[in-house]
Design a protein around this nucleic acid. Structure first.
Length: 278
DNA sequence: CATCGGACCTGTTAGC
DNA sequence: TGCTAACAGGTCCGAT
């Protein structure tokens, strides 16, 4: 489900409620997520106070305070996978099916519930001063200064893979998933099938601008709700109204007189207009 | 190295 | 109506 805008929307929705809250207890109803929940997480989390929430790529970084005698605090890392979501519930509200993990919070008294039908998401524990291995190999943030045309151009030389796969590779740039890759390539006028190594520096410049613009606008709209994505407060994101090509096979292209097509690239549905994407 | 396919899961929908 | 197959917002890992 969630790409960068949905994760960022989740972060922004949670932060005002969770900053300063204390985790009284962790209740695990299903430990078998993408990876089994680590024992050190279960032992280390209860009693900690949440200091801040950051985001790196599609990972939420829930920063915790230091225990007595420690110099820095550990970080609880959550990835939402394809179908994960976090929601703040009144503790009296019954748990739903697929609410796999809950945190009992104090100040305010709330239950933070992790819901994930497909269980492709994961929870990790990062001790103070360490970088979790999953975060070590990530490319730059798309909204940060290190994501630029020169980087895309340099990394792509000699690469024969389709540019859409190159763009979705988290070593190239993080946070761009299937929806926003399609939208950014449409906005930049680039055919998703084109070999990454056969795109000019100037066109990568247009792609960088398109990625930034699309992700930024999606964050402003609270992300994209296609089926079931909801923000932590339970409201949908509104970016679905702005989608130009994603999930619009057979519909007219918003820019030319062509028709949006659906193909498969890297086993993922890919939407584009052959009329104006070259 | 780069590239590809399979794997991990459940729920919803389209098609017969 | 009921069964089956395809498909869904991610990404790691092993084989080539």
């Amino acid at each position: 489900m969630p790409e960068l805008p949905e994760v960022e929307t989740t972060r922004r929705g949670l932060l005002p409620h969770l900053r300063g809250a204390r985790v009284l207890a962790l209740r695990v109803h299903q430990a078998r997520l993408r990876w089994p929940l680590a024992a050190e997480l279960c032992e280390g989390l209860p009693g900690r106070r949440i200091v801040d929430i950051q985001r790196r790529a599609k990972y939420l970084l829930i920063e915790l305070d230091a225990a007595a005698g420690e110099t820095g605090g550990p970080t609880l890392i959550v990835h939402l996978g394809m179908s994960g979501s976090l929601r703040l519930d009144d503790p009296a509200t019954p748990r739903r099916r697929h609410d796999h993990v809950e945190l009992d919070l104090q100040g305010p008294s709330l239950s933070l519930r992790y819901h994930d039908p497909r269980r492709f998401g994961s929870w990790h524990w990062q001790p103070a001063g360490q970088t979790h291995p999953l975060l070590a190999q990530l490319g730059p943030e798309p909204l940060g200064p290190d994501f630029d045309a020169e980087r895309l151009w340099r990394l792509s030389r000699g690469r024969r893979a389709a540019v859409k796969l190159f763009l979705m590779d988290q070593a190239t740039v993080v946070g761009v998933g299937n929806i926003y890759a399609a939208e950014a390539l449409f906005q930049a006028g680039i055919d998703p099938r084109r070999g990454a190594g056969r795109i000019s520096l100037a066109r990568y410049g247009r792609l960088v601008e398109a990625v930034r613009e699309v992700l930024g606008r999606a964050i402003e709209q609270g992300g994209t709700t296609l089926r079931d994505y909801l923000r932590p407060e339970g409201t949908p994101g509104y970016f679905a109204q702005s989608l130009a090509v994603y999930d619009k096979a057979g519909q007219p292209c918003p820019r030319c007189d062509g028709t949006v097509k659906r193909i498969v690239l890297g086993q993922r549905a890919t939407f584009f207009c052959a009329g104006c994407q070259r």
